[in-house]
């Protein structure tokens, strides 16, 4: 098994796609950092003073418009709107906010990159036909499958560590320069997102590998995931707008993935009450439920791929 692991590791790190996706992921992480700099950089005192003036002006205008609205005979509740201070004067960022935002972005980038690299890692074997050559040298299929799976998980985890690490170093630098050393605290929960992001990326690689094994190609798993994503968007829209089959919100992979990464997911949907009125209902997914859901999904994928790989006729 160790010989197989060495050979598969050698192949993983010799692939150009691995290096291309790693560079791409790093570039995306740098873009996220650049975007975060724009989005979260605290306002200067001069900017805050200007924002306060703008806010006061907007308030005056709004009061006048509300008065005009009421004078025009509109119901008071339809005219009662006022600008919010937070629309003008941004709250200074916290370190927790920066860590969380960076972790979420790095997880998304890492998971997508790992999925593509892992699917291609297996898909290339089918495309080139080298799987047949490999199996004539090493016919122990369970070990061959396991060695590839282990390498996919390790490679994906490494990708995640690099992307998460780069993002968090960048966020740390921002926090230190904006908030000072005194501001570098209070991100305990958000570090959980970083850790779970690493798990999600490794699992994403494993899922890509399993789907490529099942379909025997690189493109098919990516197309399948795209199809699933589109389908759940459509189902989500229908559920949220029409209130049909609200349980779908609990079993959608996207929602569970969000719940697992962030530790919690909640959304609301409208339901028609007995007397015809609209009632707002809350849907929540906790970390435990999401872990169980994704664990089962991954187990099914691995078991199916292993079954397929050991029984597959290689031509």
């Amino acid at each position: 098994m160790s010989r197989l692991l060495k050979a598969e590791l050698n192949r993983w790190f010799s692939r150009r796609l691995w290096w291309a996706m790693l560079l791409g992921a790093v570039a995306m992480a740098l873009l996220v950092l650049l975007g975060s700099s724009q989005a979260y950089q605290p306002q200067t005192p001069a900017q805050i003073a200007q924002a306060e003036r703008d806010y006061a002006e907007a308030q005056q205008q709004a009061e006048q418009e509300v008065k005009n609205c009421i004078d025009a005979g509109q119901p008071v509740e339809d005219c009662a709107w006022m600008p919010q201070r937070s629309d003008f004067v941004a709250e200074p960022p916290t370190y927790a906010m920066l860590v969380g935002t960076g972790a979420q972005s790095a997880t998304l980038i890492g998971a997508l990159a790992a999925l593509v690299v892992a699917a291609s890692f297996m898909g290339a074997e089918f495309k080139s036909g080298s799987l047949a050559t490999w199996l004539t040298y090493v016919p122990r299929r369970v070990q061959v499958f396991a060695s590839k799976a282990v390498v996919v998980v390790l490679g994906s985890a490494l990708l995640s560590v690099l992307v998460q690490g780069l993002t968090q170093v960048g966020m740390l630098i921002y926090a230190w320069s904006w908030l000072g050393t005194a501001g570098l605290h209070g991100a305990g929960d958000e570090w959980g997102i970083v850790g779970r992001g690493l798990v999600v990326t490794a699992a994403s690689g494993l899922l890509g590998y399993c789907l490529a094994t099942l379909f025997g190609s690189t493109i098919a798993p990516l197309a399948t995931l795209l199809g699933v994503t589109v389908a759940q968007w459509m189902a989500g829209i229908i559920t949220l707008l029409v209130g049909v089959a609200p349980w779908l919100l609990q079993v959608m992979p996207d929602n569970n993935l969000y719940a697992f990464t962030n530790g919690h997911f909640e959304t609301t949907y409208l339901e028609r009450g007995r007397s015809g009125e609209e009632v707002e209902r809350l849907v929540q997914i906790g970390l435990g439920q999401a872990s169980l859901y994704l664990g089962c999904l991954l187990t099914i994928a691995v078991a199916s791929a292993l079954w397929s790989f050991t029984r597959r006729e290689v031509r």
Partner: peptide, 9 residues
């Protein structure tokens, strides 16, 4: 290609 096979076996 051969090095990978050699490593594997």
């Amino acid at each position: 290609n051969l090095a990978l096979l050699a490593q594997g076996i």
